[in-house]
Amino acid sequence: MLKKLVLILGLILATSTHAQFYKQGNFVTDLEQGIIWLRCSLGQRWDPTKDQCQGEAMRLSHAEIDQAILQANEQLGGKWRLPSLAELEGIVCLECPAPKIDKNIFPNTASEPYWTSEANWIAPRSRWSVSFMTGLKYGRFFPQQQLAVRLVSDR
């Protein structure tokens, strides 16, 4: 009986996670956080026939990200930006195997750190990232280092 209850609770958790997101091709609306995510990492392209992100995630420094955001704004419209630490942590799936993210919502995500927009308040020269290998946040990367990027836009 206890095993059945755990399985049922696990199913409820998985279902509620899916209810947070509304997929629309290359975009996904995060209803809980009130933002829109690009489903693919920068450097990847959306393949609607396979419902999949194709290619490899680019690794960019913060200076390079500024140029990438300008291009995203031109090509996709809207105002794209790096996610905050809380926003990026909000799409981590700790129950998932690496990458620690719902692969149905965010396909082909790299199992590595992704940049956030926030400086580390303890070590201000460093920036926060979230690793989709571990699901944990790290505040040890310098802005000139190159990490993977996923962009977000306010609704």
Rank of each mutant, 00 (worst) to 15 (best):
M1N: 11
L2Q: 14
L2R: 14
K3T: 15
K4S: 12
L7V: 12
I8W: 08
L11G: 15
L11H: 06
I12P: 06
S16E: 14
S16P: 07
S16T: 15
H18G: 05
Q20G: 01
Q20N: 04
Y22M: 12
G25I: 03
G25T: 00
G25S: 03
F27C: 05
F27N: 04
F27P: 02
V28S: 09
V28F: 10
T29D: 14
L31H: 13
E32R: 15
Q33E: 12
Q33H: 12
Q33Y: 09
I35P: 06
I35N: 02
I36F: 00
W37P: 05
W37A: 06
R39H: 00
C40K: 04
C40S: 02
C40Q: 00
L42V: 03
L42W: 06
G43K: 03
Q44D: 01
Q44Y: 02
Q44G: 01
R45K: 10
W46C: 02
D47Q: 07
D47S: 01
T49E: 05
T49K: 03
T49Q: 05
Q52A: 11
Q52W: 08
Q54P: 07
G55T: 12
A57K: 01
M58S: 15
R59W: 10
L60K: 07
L60M: 01
L60I: 01
L60C: 01
A63M: 11
I65R: 07
Q67V: 09
I69F: 01
L70R: 15
L70S: 15
L70Y: 13
L70F: 13
Q71Y: 10
E74Y: 03
E74I: 13
Q75G: 12
Q75D: 12
L76A: 07
L76S: 07
G77A: 00
K79S: 11
K79C: 04
R81P: 03
L82C: 01
P83Q: 00
P83S: 00
S84R: 07
L85G: 01
L85N: 05
L85H: 03
L85C: 02
A86K: 12
E87S: 04
L88I: 10
I91E: 05
I91V: 07
I91T: 01
I91A: 04
V92G: 02
V92T: 07
E95R: 12
C96T: 00
A98Q: 06
A98H: 05
P99Q: 03
P99T: 07
K100H: 06
K100P: 00
I101E: 09
N104T: 09
P107G: 05
T109Q: 11
S111W: 12
E112H: 05
Y114N: 01
Y114C: 04
W115Y: 03
S117H: 08
I122V: 14
A123M: 13
A123L: 14
R125G: 09
R127Y: 11
R127F: 10
S129I: 04
S129V: 02
V130R: 03
F132E: 00
F132Q: 06
M133I: 01
T134A: 08
G135P: 00
K137D: 08
K137I: 12
G139M: 06
F141Q: 10
F141V: 05
F142K: 13
Q144I: 13
Q144L: 10
Q144K: 10
Q146R: 15
A148K: 01
A148L: 05
V149S: 08
V149W: 08
V149P: 03
L151F: 08
S153D: 01
S153C: 05
S153E: 08
D154C: 04
R155T: 15
R155K: 15
